[in-house]
């Protein structure tokens, strides 16, 4: 059963289309990531689910009920903001209790629920603290607790870890995922970091210019990107433009059999799928630099026309002193007009 149903939703600001005919259904207990560069409309979409923006067109339904024009205070959603947005004039307990008080719950019930949620986010006993006495990670946990304490049907997270440092971000990522799975709460998560999306999401929605590029589980997204944009946005990808003629893709320095109709095409190869062979031919790729990461090494290659590629090799030492190499992709995909035309 779909908890969240977004149908043909568009949002137009005075001059720009932020979200363009967007469709998505989110199932019960699912964690869906909205992933995209800034300006791709992901935050706007999240805010429309939360009720902070009204769609220009389309319908947002929660549990089958149309909430498109319902104000945020009447929606069963809980939002965690990027800057945590804690109320600095209230202590931690009051921040959490505010929403419960508005619902006129008895005081002992409020206390019980607040304490339980603080325990859940690992901040048991922090109720009396002022918000500015907390570290960045603790503040974000309080913000999460503030949303969870109301037991919303849908949890909305708007780049909640963006202001934290790398180490803390990774830890909180796991904690949030654990809590989400323990509570089985339906979650919509906005991020521009692919690591975050890949490590947390059940499904990822890649957005670009207000439109969906691809919706897929993380592993699928990495292995079978449907568009060159997705291919380049998730992980590292060599996107090589060239021409197909007579079943052969060609570009100076690279020739590949590609059984599609004649015309321009883009070949996408992951560095780890791009095998290279030492070569003395003048028309091969020149080795520009080798970066040794110990467990593997990245070779930067330059095609005769100046185009740069990356390839992964197991051992840097084998390549010291080598000037040129020929390219032999083990697996690749080809795109034409923004869709997959061939996958090996």
């Amino acid at each position: 059963m779909a908890v969240l149903d977004i149908k043909d939703v568009s949002k137009v600001f005075s001059t720009t289309v932020a979200v363009d005919r967007f469709n998505l259904t989110v199932g019960d207990g699912e964690l869906v990531c909205l992933l995209g560069p800034s300006g791709s409309g992901k935050s706007t979409l999240l805010r429309m689910v939360g009720g902070f923006e009204t769609p220009s067109a389309g319908v947002v339904a929660i549990d089958g009920e149309d909430v498109t024009r319902v104000p945020p205070e009447k929606r069963p959603t809980g939002m965690v903001f990027q800057s945590h947005a804690l109320w600095t004039h209230m202590n931690v307990f009051k921040n959490l209790a505010f929403g419960l008080k508005l619902r006129r719950l008895p005081a002992d019930e409020i206390k019980r629920r607040v304490d339980a949620v603080l325990e859940l986010v690992g901040l048991g006993g922090f109720g009396h603290r002022a918000t500015n006495q907390l570290s960045g990670g603790q503040q974000q946990r309080v913000a999460l607790a503030r949303s969870l304490v109301l037991e919303p049907k849908i949890l909305l997270l708007d780049e909640p870890f963006a202001s934290l440092d790398q180490h803390l971000r990774e830890r909180l990522r796991e904690e949030v995922r654990d809590i989400q799975q323990r509570l089985g709460i339906t979650t919509l998560f906005v991020t521009h970091g692919q690591d975050e999306a890949l490590s947390m999401a059940d499904r990822i929605v890649v957005m670009r210019d207000g439109k969906i590029e691809q919706v897929a589980p993380p592993d699928f997204l990495y292995r079978q990107p449907q568009t060159p944009f997705v291919a380049s946005f998730i992980g590292t990808m060599n996107l090589i433009e060239g021409v197909v003629s007579g079943g052969q893709f060609s570009r100076p320095g690279l020739k590949l059999p590609l059984p599609i109709a004649d015309g321009p095409a883009t070949v996408a190869v992951r560095p780890e799928a791009l095998a290279i062979v030492k070569s003395g031919e003048p028309d091969s790729a020149r080795i520009h630099r080798i970066t040794d990461y110990g467990a593997h090494a990245i070779v930067d290659l330059e095609l005769p026309d100046g185009f740069r590629l990356k390839a992964t090799v197991p051992d840097a030492r084998e390549w010291s002193g080598v000037q040129a190499a020929t390219l032999a992709p083990r697996a690749f995909a080809a795109y034409r007009e923004n869709v997959v035309a061939y996958r090996s």
């Binding site: 949002k11 600001f13 005075s14 720009t16 932020a18 800034s38 935050s43 706007t44 805010r47 902070f52 923006e53 990027q82 800057s83 963006a162 202001s163």
Partner: peptide
């Protein structure tokens, strides 16, 4: 930090 353009026009 990116402030969504929307936040200026909310409401």
């Amino acid at each position: 930090m990116s402030l969504t353009p929307a936040s200026d026009i909310v409401g």
